[in-house]
């Protein structure tokens, strides 16, 4: 199904999204990848606060190219989510609910998603120029020394994503492939 939703991603909203849905996201999201997640989880372990309030947020796994003069942001497609698997259950446990990336997730991430009503969205990998068009503002909020990996707050409009794994654990990667192979027989 095609759905147009406005963030933040509350548990109620998360539960309406099903694996295989095409979703257009509008609202505020935060960017982070390997190094940013490592720092955030280390901060949480020390009992410190995160650079943003994680409640009902959606985190985009992206390291954009530098903006050219006149651009809000450079090309900004998703990176491989599996590298954030070590940190995702911790982030979900403090209230972060949506994740945008690409590629497979570990069973422990899916279990945490079921527990905390998390949703894993896929953006089209390698479509960085196209996805950048949906990003209307970009503000660096922490870890500036990490360059492309710094934490950024983005405002997106009608950002096209797919629900890959929903909060019941249904997985588009498994469903889509099984459906194709069944049709071919």
């Amino acid at each position: 199904m095609e759905k147009h939703i406005t963030l933040p991603l509350t548990p109620e909203l998360a539960k309406t999204l099903k694996a295989g849905d095409t979703v257009y996201l509008t609202g505020t999201i935060y960017t982070s990848r390997d190094a940013g997640h490592k720092r955030m989880c280390e901060a949480l372990a020390r009992g410190e606060e995160l650079p943003f309030d994680p409640e009902n947020t959606t985190i985009y796994y992206v390291g954009p190219t530098p903006a050219k003069p006149g651009q809000v942001i450079g090309s900004a497609g998703p990176t491989t989510s599996g590298r954030m698997d070590a940190y995702a259950p911790t982030m979900l446990s403090v209230g972060a609910r949506g994740m945008i990336g690409k590629g497979a997730r570990l069973p422990e991430v899916v279990e945490a998603m079921k527990k905390y009503s998390g949703v894993y969205f896929g953006a089209i990998g390698g479509a960085g120029a196209l996805l950048a068009k949906c990003i209307k503002s970009c503000e660096l909020i922490a870890y500036e020394d990490l360059g492309a990996e710094a934490l950024r707050k983005l405002y997106v409009e009608e950002m096209p994503v797919f629900v890959i794994i929903d909060c019941e654990g249904n997985d588009l990667y498994k469903m889509g492939r099984a459906e194709y192979l069944a049709d071919k027989k």
Partner: peptide, 14 residues
Amino acid sequence: NYNIAGQENVPICQ
């Protein structure tokens, strides 16, 4: 995506 990148001279992928 690659058409936008080509026309605007921006990276195809980040």
